[in-house]
Design a protein around this nucleic acid. Structure first.
Length: 641
RNA sequence: GGUCCUGUAGUUCAGUGGAUAGAAUAGAAGUUUCCUAAACUUUAGACACAAGUUCGAUUCUUGUCAGGACCA
């Protein structure tokens, strides 16, 4: 028992590295660090548990891999017989066998510990900002990836000993919400979520779409006129620009570059859109909002209120929650005083026209505008202001932003500016950048109506889990409430697992058919493994036997323990890499390994009482670890399914 | 034009400067008098291309091609 406790603060891999480094410094009087040793699991076709690759040591010691391996293997088994039982060398690989007592002690010391793998409080505080919706339309598939990632990374930080504050910046002001407001005024006849029975965020979203339709129709009229060279609606700089574009387009044959032509058409489109009556209305409304015009503010509050009611329902269903919400309507003026400080510190500089910039060319970026010539601020300014406010309000050690990778540049700029301004903990402004979710048919485009709505998707997943469960007919004795809960658990579990099992930074493809699959590398697979273990444990209570026979661990029994041992490392890796998929892969592999074991060996009818106890402990620890890992992903596990 | 990200099996994803590149799914073939077959077993199938660094490169570097994002 003492062995594991002796090493309990570190993983077996680290332990091997430490011992190997110590051994070689004694053997050859040459100092090594842990990282000089590359440790892998031994391939199944060779004897041993862990393998040290010798090649990297050859150069510094000027000895053959066989000689070093022999000396190191001999030293380790000779001096740490409680840990290393034997070794062999094949080519340049030193294969080490770990003693059985190490594995059985590990199991017995930890099987009932529900917090296995989690770290003690380390006194550090981190804020995780995620979700960050706009209030003009409902949440979609992309938001789901963000929400699941954000919630999970917060749990991962907690498991690693951090205190976590979950925050959300609500983008509740700006031209987008004004668009919904304009269309609602025109077409809604006072319709409300109550009068229509439509969820608030969806209702507001409908009017946003309505606005965009109008905008499209109106701008098309303008585009047609422009293409007939009728520029009577334009003046000033835009007129000049259009002139140029039209001239360029008459020389189309010379350009030949299809991309350039599309670009010119895009520019026409943009100018047309900005000159429609509807967009001018929306812009006027935004100005009125900024001036605090009462009827605009009132409508804004009313419609945002509907959206929040809708969001609350969705957040509750998907399990997102926040300790602190920031509203952009309160924060958009932040950072103005910082601009002045930046000027005083010569971090920023002023151009002749009065606009204020920062020069980031030395860092491989461009010059970046921080305040317009008319004195109004830009996005980055309020972001700096909010970053500072977060620090002052919560005294956080680090600040993690869960934001899509289209903002990589923006975040880099934010980090750099904060650093140059000398803000406290500016090095700890971190960005969990994630890729877009695409469909098998291509990208989601709201204008083409190919956006997958979050509420619809959740409904569909839950309905599918219900269908599957009913077909299997294993839980006919459940009450209606229990059934509803189970369908939620499975449906949401499938969806969360599907979105979290992929490396966040990668663009991922959402396949409707595959995502509702409940077999293989999925949430329900892990949930099912858990439910089966719980079923066994209901029938076979764990009986303590004081003397656990040092029975030979069977191959499959050992494989499960070896997997379990890796959980703390998985938690740590997930945190340092900001990557929940590490946990998803871990729980899947653990479940798979356990299933193989379970099919092959009976727990209830084990060969001896000692074996039975060992296997029950194995089952308990696997269940605890699966539950722990899944909970960190935000996924519940059912006792029965 | 510039910067960044990504190219692995039919498909969706892992992975490592080192031994025969792993899963899942789809395909083929099996397993149910016994702890939940949403499971298990067997089988077939892939590192975009080219140079370079290295004892060794799918991994690191450079270039080409392809896809995506951002900046101008």
């Amino acid at each position: 028992m003492y062995i594991y406790h002796y090493f309990c603060s570190m993983s077996i891999v680290t332990t091997i590295q430490k011992n190997a480094a110590a051994a070689l410094s004694i053997l050859y009087n040459h100092s090594f660090t842990e990282k000089d040793f590359q440790i892998n699991l031994t391939k199944p076709e060779f004897e041993g548990d862990y393998t040290i690759v010798m090649f990297s040591l050859v150069k510094s010691l000027r000895l053959s891999p066989e000689v070093i391996g022999d000396a190191l293997g001999g030293y380790l088994t000779g001096n740490h017989p409680e840990l290393f039982s034997s070794f062999n060398i094949i080519k340049g690989f030193l294969n080490l066998s770990i003693t059985e007592s190490f594995w059985t002690d590990l199991l017995q010391s930890n099987y009932s510990n529900a917090d296995f793998g989690k770290q003690q409080n380390n006194g550090k505080k981190v804020m995780v900002e995620y979700s960050s919706p706009n209030t003009n339309k409902p949440l979609h598939l992309g938001h789901l990836r963000n929400n699941f990632l954000g919630w999970s990374i917060a749990e991962i930080y907690k498991a690693n000993g951090y205190e976590v504050i979950k925050s959300c910046i609500v983008n509740d002001r700006g031209i987008h919400i004004c668009k919904s407001m304009i269309a609602w005024q025109k077409y809604a006849n006072g319709a409300t979520p109550q009068s229509t029975g439509i969820k608030g965020d969806h209702l507001v979203g409908e009017y946003y779409v309505r606005f965009e339709d109008d905008l499209k129709a109106e701008s098309q009229i303008l585009i047609n006129k422009i293409k007939l060279a009728d520029l009577s609606d334009f003046s000033g700089a835009e007129l000049e620009k259009l002139d140029k574009i039209l001239i360029a387009l008459t020389k189309q044959d010379e350009i030949k570059d299809a991309e350039k032509i599309t670009k010119l058409h895009e520019e026409i489109k943009e100018i047309a859109r900005n000159n429609t009556a509807v967009i001018k209305e929306a812009k006027q409304m935004l100005l009125d909002w900024e001036k605090g015009k009462p009827e605009v503010i009132e409508l804004w509050k009313k419609m945002n209120g509907w959206v929040y009611e809708g969001f609350d329902i969705t957040y509750k269903r998907i399990g997102s929650d926040f300790d602190k919400a920031y509203y952009e309507s309160n924060t958009y003026l932040l950072g103005k005083d910082i601009v002045q400080q930046g000027l005083d510190k010569n971090v920023f500089f002023k151009k002749e026209d009065g606009s204020i910039w920062i020069d980031l060319t030395a860092d491989g970026l461009d010059e970046k505008l921080v305040q317009r010539k008319d004195g109004t601020s830009v996005y980055i300014t309020q972001d700096i202001g909010l970053a500072l406010q977060k620090y002052e309000e919560y005294k956080i050690d680090s600040s993690l932003y869960v934001i899509g990778n289209e903002q990589n540049y923006h975040m880099k700029v934010l980090q750099l500016i904060c650093k140059k301004l000398g803000m406290p903990n500016a090095d700890n402004i971190l960005h969990l950048s994630y890729g877009m979710v695409e469909l098998t048919t291509g990208k989601m485009k709201s204008r083409e109506g190919t956006v997958v709505d979050a509420d619809d998707l959740v409904d569909e997943m839950i309905a599918t889990s219900q269908k599957h469960t009913e077909e299997l007919g294993k839980v006919k004795d459940f009450t209606p409430a229990e059934l509803t809960d189970l369908y939620d658990t499975i449906g949401l579990g499938a969806m969360k697992f599907y979105l979290l099992r992929v490396d966040p930074k990668k663009t991922m493809v959402f396949n409707p058919e595959e995502s509702i699959d409940f077999h293989g590398f999925t949430g329900p697979f892990v949930q099912y493994t858990y439910a089966r273990i719980k079923s066994i444990l209901r029938k076979e209570p764990l009986v303590e036997i004081t003397t656990l026979a040092d029975a030979d661990l069977l191959k499959l029994e050992k494989e499960v323990i070896v997997m379990l041992e890796q959980y703390p490392v998985a938690l740590e890796t997930a945190c340092t890499e900001h990557n929940p998929s590490v946990i998803a892969m871990f729980v899947f592999n653990l479940a798979k390994t356990f299933n193989s074991f379970y099919t092959e060996h009976s727990i209830a009818n084990a060969e001896t009482p000692a074996k039975k106890q060992l296997r029950l402990q194995l089952a308990v620890m696997t269940a605890n670890t699966l539950k722990s890992g899944m909970e960190i992903l935000g996924i519940r596990v059912p006792e029965r399914m």
